[in-house]
């Protein structure tokens, strides 16, 4: 991490821009949910896509994941793998039951 005042000033600018972008995308998220894209999965997918993009901005810029050490990435890769696995497992559990329980 560069700590010179000039670098930090540049960071500040980036933070302001990202913050503004996040606000704009929040408005967009709300707006698109009033538009019907034809299918529930499409509606949910688009909403989640925007949310993921916003979350990515926060993680990448605010949480400095754009220049972090290898060790941190290693930890996070495993974490995200397991979270994704958990999502998949829970979806599968609903999609593939022997008997429907409802």
């Amino acid at each position: 991490m560069a700590d010179t005042p000039e670098e930090l000033q540049k960071h500040l600018k980036a933070y302001t821009i990202v913050g503004a972008a996040l606000l704009v995308f929040t408005v967009i998220t709300v707006a698109v949910t009033y538009v019907d894209f034809g299918h529930t999965f499409a509606n949910v997918g688009i909403g989640l896509g925007i949310a993921t993009f916003k979350a990515g901005l926060v993680a990448y810029i605010f949480m400095h994941l754009n220049h972090e050490r290898a060790m941190i990435y290693r930890i996070l890769v495993f974490t995200f793998f397991f979270v994704a696995g958990m999502f998949l497992l829970f979806m599968l559990a609903q999609a593939d039951p022997i008997t429907r329980f409802r």
């Binding site: 941190i72 930890i75 996070l76 974490t79 958990m86 999502f87 497992l89 829970f90 979806m91 609903q94």
Partner: peptide, 27 residues
């Protein structure tokens, strides 16, 4: 290191909740 490890575990915590959400919504 500590905070990122802690956040990793938080990711799993909320991951568990989000997957429960998915499960409950699909069902």
């Amino acid at each position: 290191v500590g905070i990122w490890l802690f956040l990793a575990s938080e990711v799993m915590l909320f991951g568990g909740l989000f997957s429960s959400y998915i499960f409950l919504r699909l069902g």
